[in-house]
Amino acid sequence: MNVSAPPRFERPGAVGFTLFVAAAAFIIWSFQNSGLSLEHLERGFPAIIRVLGRMFPPDITDIDRILWSLLTTFQMAIAGVVLGLILSLPIAILAADGLSPHPVVKQAARGLIALFRTVPDLVWALIFVITVGLGSPAGILTIMVDTIGFAGRFFATAMEETDKGSREALASIGATRSGIVFSSVIPDAMPSFIATSLFCVEKAVRSSVVLGLVGAGGIGVELKVAFDLFEYDVAATIIILIFILVVCVEQAGEWMRRRVM
């Protein structure tokens, strides 16, 4: 019996083809509308070389002050993450399928997490600078909110994916809802909680660096001042130290995740 080979690609339908053409047209329009051209790249490239040239060698005369500022930034990140993680857990429980006490509560908790996640951290920083003033407290609150937006969602998902069997076993014993959550769901979800928390620390350290640009404390202020005063060699020192800090935190996080998972 002769069997004809199937076509390599399925023929797109009219709707699919129209959507494809529309998406391609939008991408081309986006490039045109953003004004990016080869001329910009031609002009910008020598400028980048010039700035890089002025960055090296980095100026380390004031390294003590920069290191202290970096430590403060790191501490701001840690404080914000810890607060955020503590608040994430109850919000995530309220947002999780099968754990939330009521559908309205679940939707409210999910809405809060979505709000915290979708509004960018720099916008939260601006809001907190206006409300609590310039400095680290605004940065800590920003990182806290950002952490709730990130960890709240992942904590809820992790808890929803835990073993239903052990939950059912405890329900059959007559355990309370909180008993089931703390005896079964949280221990089961713990590896995922730790992995998410480590990602939050990494994210917060990266985020804390730029929060200073809008006055929310941290080493970002030093970086902005260095650029404003055209002290590119000082800026280079700050950027290199930030790079080392972020890489160290990521490596430590990766190592801890491997041990936990």
């Binding site: 073993d163 069997g165 052990s166 059912e168 076993a169 329900a171 059959s172 014993i173 007559g174 355990a175 309370t176 005896s183 079964s184 221990p187 089961d188 713990m190 590896p191």
Partner: peptide, 19 residues
Amino acid sequence: RRLRARIGFVFQKHFLVSR
């Protein structure tokens, strides 16, 4: 819950908290 507390249930799979 009070009634269930008086009834033990052993499942086909143990359904323990594995960690």
